[in-house]
Design a protein around this nucleic acid. Structure first.
Length: 154
DNA sequence: GCCAACGTTGGC
DNA sequence: GCCAACGTTGGC
């Protein structure tokens, strides 16, 4: 029984089309403890993810990905040359975690944030709350289905 | 590019 | 442990 999540990425940095080309990637660079807890403990193999484009024109849900490997230490936190390097993170005492995700589908039409806000059945979704910055957040199954249908145009 | 909202840091 | 300062996120 898969559970559902929403993950944010800036399309200028890594878009769902980048994921489609790569087929699979590890979700690095999360440096927020609440999101880290979800990556380390929450996301399970087979869980489905709404792929959200943030800081975009327009921002919104661009497609669906699937978790294919559960949380493990973030390699980018060990790499001194990486923007996400964190000296407090070590191989022995990791702080930051990643999961691997694979591309499932790119929506025919991105579902803009505005459309999510306009759909009454989605009014409790976290992502539409003002000031919601959490980059990995849980999504209710019913909400996931509604958003996916909006994206598939069905 | 602006800036409100939020999380984190560090002085005390 | 408080809270001001600072840095980041992310919609607009």
């Amino acid at each position: 029984m898969p559970r559902y999540w929403l993950m944010k990425s800036e399309p200028d940095v890594y878009s769902i089309e980048d994921l489609r080309k790569d087929k699979r990637t590890y979700w690095d660079g999360v440096r927020n403890y609440q999101a880290r807890n979800s990556l380390r403990d929450g996301l399970k193999k087979g869980d489905l993810v709404l792929y959200y484009h943030s800081n975009a024109e327009p921002s919104g849900v661009a497609g669906v990905a699937r978790v294919v490997r559960e949380g493990y230490p973030d390699p980018s936190a060990l790499d001194k040359k990486d923007d996400h390097y964190d000296p407090k993170h070590t191989a022995e005492r990791p702080i930051w975690y990643v999961v691997d995700v694979e591309h499932v589908e790119t929506f025919k039409k991105l579902v803009p944030l505005e459309a999510l806000k306009a759909e009454p059945r989605l009014k409790t979704m976290l992502v539409i709350k003002r000031g919601m910055r959490l980059s990995v957040q849980p999504v209710e199954g019913a909400h996931f289905d509604i958003v996916r249908r909006m994206g598939q145009g069905t």
